Amino acid sequence: MELIEGMLARRTTNGPFRPDRVSREHQHTLMRAAQAAPSHFNSQPWRFVLVEHPDTIARVAQLSGDSMTELIEAGVFFERYRRYFRFSAQEMDARRDGIHIDHLPGPLRPFTRQIFSDAGLKVMRQLGVPRKLGEDNRKLVAGSPLLLAALLDKTEYRPGELSGFYSVFGLGAAIENIWNAVGELGMGIQFISTPMEIPRQWQAMQELLRVPPELELMAVYRLGYLPEHEARPSIDWSSRQRKRLEQFVYRETCDTPEAEVVR
């Protein structure tokens, strides 16, 4: 039951970490947790790069911050993801998916529902919000004591073939094991996603990590020990709601939604 309770308590860390170096023991514990994940024919297609050097972390942070600024300035980020944004607790409870935007800088609060519209984007540009968010993102990544790059072996990862699906499925299981293990170590984890949105920035990331031709860089994460009190970023959200059983589970066929057991 402790394992299940830990899985149900899993969360993403949006705020800063403590500056303390992540111990080598804890790093290796996370790698062993990843290694325990299932994979097709025990192929173990995953590879990981543990990054602690301040110069490398600073460069990843710059790529992440610049990407965030560019995506928001151009409106690409909101155009791509606005369907996931919720603006009230009631809306979040009804939908039970997406993210509830519940923390905004003072000047933007009157525009909460319009913030991701064309008019709202214009206001954001005028207030310098894209640059501010990019800088916040840069600082967040730069202050992380450990980065983790996840890669796949191209011998297994062949998009369009079943082996490609199997390898991505296996990497997902490995990452989920890490995500579930960090809490037990007093740590947090967050996906560094913005460089992936811009091909030239992702290429720069691959060059920085010296990814060889036989490997495919799939994702980068930031990790660290959690502070006692977490500070929230300028624009932040909560995403603890989950769909009810009848919204995603069926019984016998897809014709019959599963009923929740009344306790």
Results as ranks from 00 to 15, higher is better:
Val168Lys: 05
Leu223Arg: 03
Phe77Glu: 07
Pro45Gly: 10
Glu156Met: 06
Gln247Arg: 06
Glu2Asp: 10
Pro233Arg: 05
Gln190Lys: 13
Phe165Val: 12
Gly172Glu: 06
Leu245Ile: 15
Glu258Cys: 11
Ala9Cys: 07
Asn42Ile: 13
Arg83Met: 09
Ser64Cys: 14
Phe191Glu: 06
Trp202Phe: 13
Gly164Met: 07
Ile101Asp: 00
Arg232Val: 12
Pro130Met: 08
Pro19Asp: 08
Glu246Asn: 15
Ala204Gly: 12
Arg96Tyr: 07
Gly224Gln: 03
Gln90Pro: 00
Glu70Leu: 14
His103Ala: 12
Met7Asp: 04
Pro159Ser: 07
Val123Gln: 08
Arg242Ala: 02
Leu185Pro: 02
Glu79Thr: 13
Ala174Asn: 01
Gly65Gln: 02
Asp136His: 10
Asn137Ser: 15
Leu8Ser: 02
Arg200Gln: 13
Pro213Asn: 09
Thr13Asp: 08
Val141Thr: 08
Leu3Val: 13
Ser88Glu: 10
Glu91Thr: 11
Glu230His: 06
Leu171Ala: 04
Asp102Met: 13
Ala259Tyr: 00
Glu228Ser: 14
Tyr157Val: 04
Val51Ser: 03
Val76Trp: 04
Ala219Ser: 12
Val22Pro: 07
Ile4Asp: 00
Ala150Thr: 15
Trp46Gly: 02
Ala259Gln: 09
Glu135Lys: 11
Glu52Thr: 15
Gly188Glu: 05
Thr112Glu: 11
Lys132Tyr: 11
Met1Val: 05
Phe48Lys: 06
Gln206Val: 11
Arg80Asn: 13
Ser64Gln: 10
Met205Gly: 04
Glu70Trp: 07
Arg80Trp: 02
Arg109Cys: 12
Gly65Thr: 09
Gln206Pro: 04
Leu108Ala: 07
Arg232Glu: 09
Pro145His: 10
Asp102Cys: 12
Arg240Val: 14
Ala204Val: 10
Val249Asn: 01
Gly15Asp: 07
Arg80Ala: 15
Ala58Asp: 05
Asn137Cys: 15
Ser167His: 02
Glu5Pro: 00
Ser238Gly: 12
Ala174Pro: 02
Ala94Cys: 01
Glu260Pro: 03
Ile175Gln: 04
Gly15Cys: 10
Val168Pro: 00
Glu70Ala: 14
Arg59Asp: 01
Ala74Glu: 08
Pro195Ala: 12
Pro107Thr: 10
Asp118Arg: 14
Glu161Pro: 00
Ser43His: 08
Ala204Leu: 11
Gly172Lys: 06
Arg125Trp: 02
